[in-house]
Computed example of a mutant assay.
Amino acid sequence: MITIVTAPTIRAVTLEEARQQLRLDTHDEDMLLAIHLDAAQAELEWLADLRVCPQTLAMVLDAWPDEITVPVRPVTIAAITYTATSGATVSLPEADYVARTRHGFMRIRPAAGKSWPKLAPDGQITITLSAGFAEDHPNLAISRAAILVKTASLFENREGASCLAFDTLVNQLAARWV
């Protein structure tokens, strides 16, 4: 299970950028526009297993699998802690594991010659992750374009309509990770 520890402090696309996309001169519908921006970003993140804006996440496990796959991207590992057999929460040293990205997803396994440490009977593992694109990452530009076209579609077609341009951009993002 992944939870948000520190939520993003910004949107991938600002209200002003969305207003420009829609050629809106007033702020009369900013609340509706903000709702559509949030919905478009959430849909993009869900469909493409992404976290667009910088945030901190925690992934909690009840046991050590052979290899841990983090189901969102892009991420880096900030810390791995676990409940040792003594009951204490212990940080796993970076030298004890290998983290590699394959198909865009972070995979974590014990380092060569190492094994996962023993857990307390009711222990757990917490992997703290830094997620989101850097400002200059090319996938951020594609994500922002997808959010803009989806927001425009939601705004202009309030009764609901599919958005082929959004679907195309989401598929393009997904293909970039293969």
Rank of each mutant, 00 (worst) to 15 (best):
I4P: 03
Q172A: 07
A175L: 12
A111F: 04
S162Q: 09
T56N: 07
A39S: 12
L15I: 15
A131L: 09
A42D: 14
T89I: 14
A79K: 12
F105V: 01
A7N: 12
S153K: 03
S162V: 05
L148P: 03
V13I: 10
R19G: 07
I10M: 11
E43H: 07
G87L: 06
E45Q: 14
L140T: 07
F105S: 01
A111N: 08
Q55D: 01
K118S: 12
A146G: 05
R109E: 08
L33S: 08
A175Y: 09
S86Y: 02
N139C: 13
V70M: 03
K150L: 14
L169H: 04
R23E: 14
P8G: 12
M1C: 00
D38W: 02
H103S: 13
N157Q: 10
M59N: 01
L92E: 07
A58F: 00
F155Y: 15
I108M: 05
C53A: 15
A141M: 13
A39Q: 14
R23N: 15
T83H: 03
I80A: 05
A165D: 13
F155P: 06
I125G: 02
C163I: 05
D28F: 14
D25K: 15
D25Q: 15
T85M: 05
I127A: 04
V149Q: 06
T151V: 09
L169D: 08
L47R: 15
D30A: 08
L44C: 02
W116R: 01
V98E: 11
I147L: 11
R19A: 10
A146W: 12
L148Q: 10
R107E: 07
D136E: 15
I147H: 09
T3C: 00
K114H: 12
D122L: 09
L92H: 06
L15G: 13
A120I: 00
F155A: 11
T69G: 01
P74Q: 04
P117N: 02
L47G: 00
A78E: 15
L32E: 13
I4S: 11
R158M: 10
E156L: 15
